[in-house]
């Protein structure tokens, strides 16, 4: 029982990381119908920006702001350089361009910063607390907390604010939105900025746990993508639930089935979902309007 509780906590912690990255995926997908394969690299770049800013002597909070501003800029560049020129083409060229962007980002950081992993200290001084039989890592607690806050914030933002509603209108029907006088390209730009900042936030939050390395983003991103599909594509709550579920499944799978095949569970679950319950996860089948 103690064992299961400890595994559950870790699973939820890891799952919250997947959920954060998945959120960025979902937002971009809803706005542009494109899966951004460079989403994981956003997390990696933000963590490196944070390391650089701290090395430059900035205090933690200032480094945090600098890193997030840097991510906002990256979101703008990414939109203008990768998505915008291809916006009238099918999904395929865009997917491939984002794969290219992910290679470009990962290796640019490698070229500038070298291959060794870096250390980024956590926000808290104490590494964690022991509650009965379970050890709670303080950074995981923070990640879980931030995830909960973001869910609430997203709900408020998309349902209660005018900008949020405009963004939603854009993602649901671009033609209609532009008829209503919403600037679609501005909305898409905002979406990219927001997603880049979210991805960056996830990167900065996990860096103290996983260290800062070139590969840190890509493995998380693949799992996060699987999480979005399991949870239900295009749905914010689905991404969070999918992420958490995946984290827990993985941790328990590793403990009770096989450690070396741990990374395979996510993908097996995903394929099983796609084969056996595709309707269950999309809800209404989306048919192209003739």
């Amino acid at each position: 029982m103690d064992l299961a509780l400890q595994l559950l906590f870790t699973g939820i912690g890891i799952g919250a990381v997947y959920a954060l990255v998945a959120l960025g995926f979902v937002l971009i997908f809803r706005a542009t119908n494109v899966v951004n394969f460079a989403q994981g690299e956003f997390s990696m770049v933000a963590a490196y920006l944070m390391v650089v800013a701290i090395e430059a002597g900035l205090p933690y909070w200032a480094a945090f702001i600098v890193a997030l501003l840097g991510m906002a800029l990256l979101g703008v560049i990414f939109n203008l350089g990768v998505y915008y020129p291809l916006r009238h083409r099918t999904y395929l060229p865009v997917i491939i361009a984002t794969i290219g962007a992910s290679i470009l980002l990962a290796n640019s950081v490698l070229a500038i910063y070298g291959p060794q992993p870096q250390v980024l200290e956590g926000w808290f001084e104490t590494p964690g607390i022991q509650v009965g039989p379970v050890y709670l890592d303080s950074q995981y607690l923070l990640i879980i907390g931030v995830t909960i806050c973001l869910v609430i914030f997203n709900f408020w933002f998309f349902e209660k604010t005018l900008l949020g509603k405009k963004l939603q209108a854009t993602s649901q029907d671009k033609e209609m939105a532009s008829l209503l006088g919403i600037s679609v390209s501005t909305m898409i730009m905002i979406t990219f900025i927001y997603s880049a900042v979210l991805g960056g936030l996830a990167g900065i939050l996990v860096a103290p746990v996983l260290f800062v390395s070139i590969q840190m983003g890509s493995t998380i991103a693949l799992k996060a993508f699987a999480a979005t599909i399991i949870g239900g594509f295009g749905d914010v709550a689905g991404a969070i639930i999918g992420g958490l579920a995946l984290g827990v499944i993985e941790t328990f799978g590793a403990a009770y089935v096989s450690v070396p095949y741990k990374d395979g569970f996510a993908f097996l679950v995903l394929i099983a979902f796609l084969i056996f319950r595709p309707q269950g996860i999309f809800g209404e089948r989306v048919a192209e309007k003739a």
Binding site: L3, Q6, L7, T10, I14, V17, V209, L210, Q215, T219, I220, T251, A254, A255, V259, P260, Y261, K262, D263
Partner: peptide
């Protein structure tokens, strides 16, 4: 016990 490279979490291994 074996583990795959680039694991993000070792809790199950430690508990084992």
């Amino acid at each position: 016990q074996g583990y795959a490279n680039q694991s993000q979490d070792f809790t199950p291994v430690v508990l084992a």
